[in-house]
Design a protein around this nucleic acid. Structure first.
Lengths: 344, 344
DNA sequence: AAACACAATGCAAACGTTTGCATTTATTTT
DNA sequence: AAAATAAATGCAAACGTTTGCATTGTGTTT
């Protein structure tokens, strides 16, 4: 059994009849400490079950080798894959990650920011909550000179480096694919268009239609919380009172799934009676039947890109950093739900 | 623009012509500080963009109000839901969470443990990596008197509180359901049975069969890495050379999905020609067609239970805590994949 | 009016490191 | 052999809080 208190470098110093400075330097492999002393110290440290006190060390050094990351939710594949990407860059570089969830609430997001500033993290990576409009809390991070990089849900109200998907292009590519398949009567479904990503996806969709001389104005548009249930409810009701469109382009796989279920309930065959496309390439999208045409966003790459930008800012000597943008091109994945069987 | 250095309580004290102690007490709402002073301090703090230095505070107090959590991977619904459960208990109690991934490697797990000890977390929650056999690193945590609770992937080599699923019971219930549906010719699929959870699920399956006088010995058993692809490959090959069983009980939804795909390729109707059951209630399991019968594990509850146990240990005055176990009962979810249509 | 209680604040040490500078000891140069 | 250099370690302050105890000032009791 160990004693009540934790071992400190002082204890080790006392035991070896040297000073704490020497112990500290020995543990940190300082060049001016003799190998003999280093060995002695390291052995003693092990013997006494010494674990450095990161709080004391960080305090003295004025910073922790820790990066804070704020995401709306971790139980979304998109975000947890991004986290993996981030770790794959930051861990080898010697940083630990503190992950916070905003739960899509701006109040929690502000809370998280405060915690991270208080912990004097070396940098912050974040994706804004769906509620976030005002960015005072981001300004605060910048005032504290903490490097900050936004990803996916970004803001352009402040000069901050960020990593984005080219959502407009993703939606554009998808729409062109759908038009090429011969569909003309569209329905668009998406999350609220005050959120950048949905706005951009809508723009891409609109541009594609216009480029082929179709009139987006007359197309159906449904905007709502991007979940299965919301889309299902809407679509059930819609099909009750209206003629089905040729194709539903849902800018969320969950909404696409809702639409599919509503259609199947009505006895509509997909894709022969109605086609459905999604967005995000959620894991289930290739497990369902018909397999869902969607857009892959390379989430892990987003994390890597964001981590690289942050790393550069953290290591930069320069006080004033020029914000940079990384824009990733998504990839269209064509599956069964939008390609009519040959015999038709 | 702010000055290069961060504001400290000293700066606030100087600005108000009082001492740092008073500022500290005012910020922490100490009863002996007058309301007037508190207001003054708080106002000044806001004005000067003060953010408390958690490192200094933690160092002085000897502990951080932080809990460390180690999971094999965060991009599994099972684990990310557990994390949500943990946060729902720990955040209101005033704790922050540091989440670490072991990536199923014992070496990373040991690394993580060291980091958490160094950061003097108030407690650790962990689920062991699939590799972990030796538990010296857990002993180390205990030596440092850091409260520790294991969940899901536990070890009984040390006296540690833990939260487990009753996997045996879950599999038992499922098997009984399948027998009741009239299936007799079984195939069992699962992960490696040296892993506790798969072993237990197998035991439950076996016990159920025996209780109904069926001979498990003659049933088909496939043991492999619990992924869709592995199960798909196996099943394709199996159906090529053998008569299909009545029912496949896969103790992983992904394996079940692989089996389903192989069957559908062969033109077998589910559940009429062959039934398939899974385990874990992955999100996709109710999105596919037919909807998959499976077992819900209440992952969020696991997190809550673990957090509650930890909280008690952290708050306990008592130095020696008696380890406690919470065992959660999973719930059978009967869906389409195992229930024959009425007209048959 | 002296003695007391009480509220509010100040003083100073402590938490465990790190690090610039000073000191000691050993080695090399003149 | 004295002086200069190099190598290894020690000294002490600092990081920004918190907190037990001491001090001050104000109002209350005898």
């Amino acid at each position: 059994m160990v004693s009540k208190k934790q071992t400190t470098i002082q204890d080790i110093a006392k035991a070896l009849n040297i000073t704490a400075s020497t112990v500290s330097r020995a543990m940190n492999d300082h060049p001016k400490i003799s190998q003999a002393t280093k060995n002695m110290v390291i052995e003693k440290a092990r013997e006494m079950q010494y674990q450095p006190n990161a709080m004391a060390s960080n305090l003295r050094k004025g910073k922790a080798n820790t990066v804070g990351m704020i995401v709306p939710r971790i139980n979304r594949h998109f975000f947890s894959n991004i986290i993996n990407g981030v770790e794959s860059i930051l861990n080898p570089a010697g940083y630990n990650l503190i992950i916070c969830q905003s739960e899509e609430r701006v109040s929690k997001e502000i809370e998280n920011v405060k915690t991270l500033i208080s912990n004097r993290v070396s940098g912050i990576l974040m994706s804004l909550s769906i509620e976030t409009q005002d960015v005072k809390h981001l300004q605060k991070v910048m005032n504290h000179r903490i490097p900050l990089v936004l990803f996916d849900r970004v803001s352009n109200k402040l000069p901050i480096s960020c990593v984005e998907n080219d959502d407009e292009l993703g939606a554009y590519d998808m729409t062109i694919h759908l038009i090429d398949q011969g569909y003309t009567n569209f329905m668009w479904m998406g999350g609220p268009r005050n959120v950048f990503i949905y706005k951009n996806r809508y723009c891409g969709y609109k541009k594609a239609l216009e480029s082929r001389k179709l009139k987006p104005a007359q197309m159906q548009i449904f905007e709502g919380h991007p979940t299965l249930q919301v889309a299902l409810d809407f679509m059930r009701n819609y099909l009750e009172h209206n003629k089905a469109p040729d194709v539903v382009f849902a800018t969320s796989d969950y909404m696409a799934m809702g639409a599919i279920q509503a259609c199947q309930e009505k006895g509509l065959k997909i894709p022969d009676d109605i086609a459905v496309a999604g967005y995000a390439n959620e894991p289930f999208s290739e497990l369902i039947s018909p397999k869902l045409t969607t857009v892959e966003q390379y989430s892990e790459e987003i994390g890597k890109a964001a981590a690289r930008l942050l790393l550069e800012e953290m290591l930069s000597e320069n006080d004033e950093v020029i914000p940079r943008k990384t824009i990733l091109r998504p990839r269209l994945i064509v599956r069964e739900s939008t390609v009519k069987s040959k015999q038709e």
